[in-house]
């Protein structure tokens, strides 16, 4: 299953709901303002680090670039994909849940 989160975790609880209600083995893609959730050393990065134990966490590169965030600022284990990678994640998952 692929979950997409497009909200900043510092403003909305979408990411936390997604982490709480997704299952081991799921993939989570952060896009739009959701990409801020992938920043290393923030108040919420421990939650992402914990979820990486049994879930894949991806972040949309074009949205990182737009926000001036370079790859070296991301939590270790978070993988950067482009829009083609987003499509592939959606193809590979049986369902896609958007946490709007």
């Amino acid at each position: 299953m692929l979950h997409t989160v497009n909200k900043s975790p510092f403003e909305k609880n979408s990411l936390h709901s997604c982490l709480r209600l997704s299952k081991p083995g799921a993939n989570i893609l952060l896009l739009e303002d959701g990409v801020y959730g992938a920043l290393k050393g923030s108040d919420i990065s421990e939650d992402i680090e914990a979820s990486l134990a049994d879930r894949g966490v991806y972040v949309l590169g074009p949205d990182l670039k737009a926000r001036g965030i370079h790859d070296d600022r991301l939590i270790d284990g978070v993988q950067v994909v482009d829009y083609a990678g987003f499509v592939k994640l959606a193809v590979d998952a049986p369902r896609v849940q958007s946490w709007l």
Binding site: S8, P62, D63, A66, R67
Partner: peptide
């Protein structure tokens, strides 16, 4: 303050999302 601080982040480049880069 809050997420507003992200507005001033350096190196913003929207060329790959196609929106206007107003930074």
């Amino acid at each position: 303050t809050d997420d507003g601080v992200f507005q001033l982040k350096k190196d913003q480049d929207t060329s790959d999302i196609g929106t206007k880069n107003f930074s």
